[in-house]
Amino acid sequence: DAGNNSLPAGQPVHLVIDHHPPKKELADVFWVDIRENYGASATILYEYLNSQEVSINTKLATSLFYAIKSETQDLGREWSKADREAYLRLLPLSNNQILYDIIHPQVSRNYFTTFYTAIKDARVYGEALVFNLHKVANPDLVSELADFLLRQQGVNYVLGMGWYDTTQILSMRSLNPEAKLGLVIQEMVAGIGTAGGHGMVAGGQVRGVAEDDQSQQDLEELLVERMFQALSLTKNPGESLI
C-alpha cells in the first residue's frame, strides 16, 4: 500500500515502515511510519534502534549500511540529512569483507547473458531508453539493468521490464530530480497493475501477463506510449542502442 511491493492481495498488514508515498488510506494499519523525504527505509529502522539504545551488531550494521548505500547510490540520489547521518554512523560498524562480498559477488554466465539481452534489446527514444529482458531468473535484475543503462550519454529516463512467474516487473530510473517517477509509473499501469516510487526511482508490476512475444510486445507498446504521455515528451521512432 506504500510504494511498490509484492505482498499478496488481501494479505493483512499490521505495520508499515516506508519512505514511499502511500497509494491509499492506511487507517486500518496498527503502526504506520512513512517518511517521504527519506532516501531509504533502512534509515528509519536505524533511527528506531538508535533512539532505544539498541546495540547494533556487525551483521545488522552491515545490512543497514548496504541498504542505505544501494538505495541512495552512495548518497548521490534522493538522500536526506538523516540518511547521511545513518550512513556515516553505520560505516565504521560494518564489516568490509561482507560488504565486498555483497557488492562484488561471483555470478553465473546467465548474469552476463542478461546484460547482453538488455543491451541488445534496448531502444533509445531521444532522452528515454526502454529495454525488455523478457523471462528473468531474478526480478531484481530489472532494476539493476535500469541503473546500469541510465549511464548512457544523453539518456535521462529509463524504463526496464522483465517477465517473472506470470508477472511483468517494471523499473524506472531518471537523472531528473523533478521527474516524479512514482506518479508517472502509476499513470502507466493504471487499470492493469500496481506501482509506486519517488522522484527519480520507481517500480511496478503487471500480473497475469503471458510470456509469448506478442503479449510482451503489446504490453511494451502500451507502457511506452503511456510513459511518453505521462512525461509530456515527444516520442520519436527510436533506434537500437547498439
Score class of each variant (00 low, 15 high):
residue 2 A to M: 05
residue 3 G to L: 01
residue 6 S to P: 00
residue 6 S to L: 14
residue 12 P to W: 04
residue 12 P to N: 05
residue 13 V to G: 05
residue 16 V to C: 09
residue 16 V to L: 11
residue 24 K to Q: 06
residue 24 K to E: 04
residue 30 F to I: 13
residue 31 W to Y: 15
residue 41 S to W: 03
residue 42 A to Y: 05
residue 43 T to S: 08
residue 43 T to K: 03
residue 48 Y to F: 15
residue 48 Y to M: 09
residue 49 L to S: 02
residue 54 V to S: 07
residue 55 S to R: 12
residue 55 S to M: 13
residue 55 S to N: 14
residue 56 I to G: 07
residue 59 K to Q: 15
residue 59 K to E: 15
residue 62 T to L: 01
residue 66 Y to R: 05
residue 67 A to Q: 07
residue 67 A to C: 13
residue 68 I to W: 04
residue 68 I to F: 01
residue 69 K to C: 10
residue 75 L to G: 08
residue 76 G to F: 09
residue 78 E to L: 08
residue 80 S to L: 02
residue 80 S to Q: 05
residue 86 A to G: 04
residue 87 Y to P: 03
residue 88 L to I: 10
residue 90 L to N: 03
residue 92 P to R: 08
residue 96 N to E: 13
residue 100 Y to Q: 15
residue 103 I to H: 07
residue 104 H to Q: 11
residue 105 P to Q: 06
residue 106 Q to D: 10
residue 107 V to M: 10
residue 110 N to H: 10
residue 114 T to Q: 00
residue 115 F to Y: 14
residue 116 Y to V: 04
residue 120 K to P: 01
residue 123 R to H: 12
residue 131 F to P: 02
residue 134 H to N: 13
residue 136 V to F: 08
residue 137 A to W: 07
residue 140 D to I: 14
residue 143 S to F: 01
residue 145 L to G: 05
residue 149 L to N: 06
residue 153 Q to V: 09
residue 155 V to W: 01
residue 157 Y to Q: 03
residue 158 V to E: 11
residue 168 Q to L: 12
residue 171 S to I: 06
residue 172 M to Y: 06
residue 173 R to A: 08
residue 174 S to G: 03
residue 176 N to E: 12
residue 177 P to D: 14
residue 184 V to A: 10
residue 184 V to R: 03
residue 184 V to D: 09
residue 186 Q to H: 08
residue 187 E to R: 15
residue 187 E to F: 07
residue 189 V to M: 02
residue 195 A to N: 06
residue 196 G to H: 02
residue 197 G to V: 08
residue 203 G to I: 00
residue 206 V to H: 00
residue 207 R to M: 14
residue 207 R to S: 15
residue 210 A to E: 12
residue 214 Q to T: 13
residue 215 S to Q: 12
residue 221 E to A: 15
residue 222 L to G: 01
residue 226 R to T: 11
residue 227 M to S: 09
residue 228 F to P: 10
residue 229 Q to R: 15
residue 231 L to M: 08
residue 233 L to C: 11
residue 234 T to S: 09
residue 238 G to Q: 04
residue 238 G to A: 12
residue 240 S to R: 10
residue 241 L to P: 00
residue 242 I to P: 12
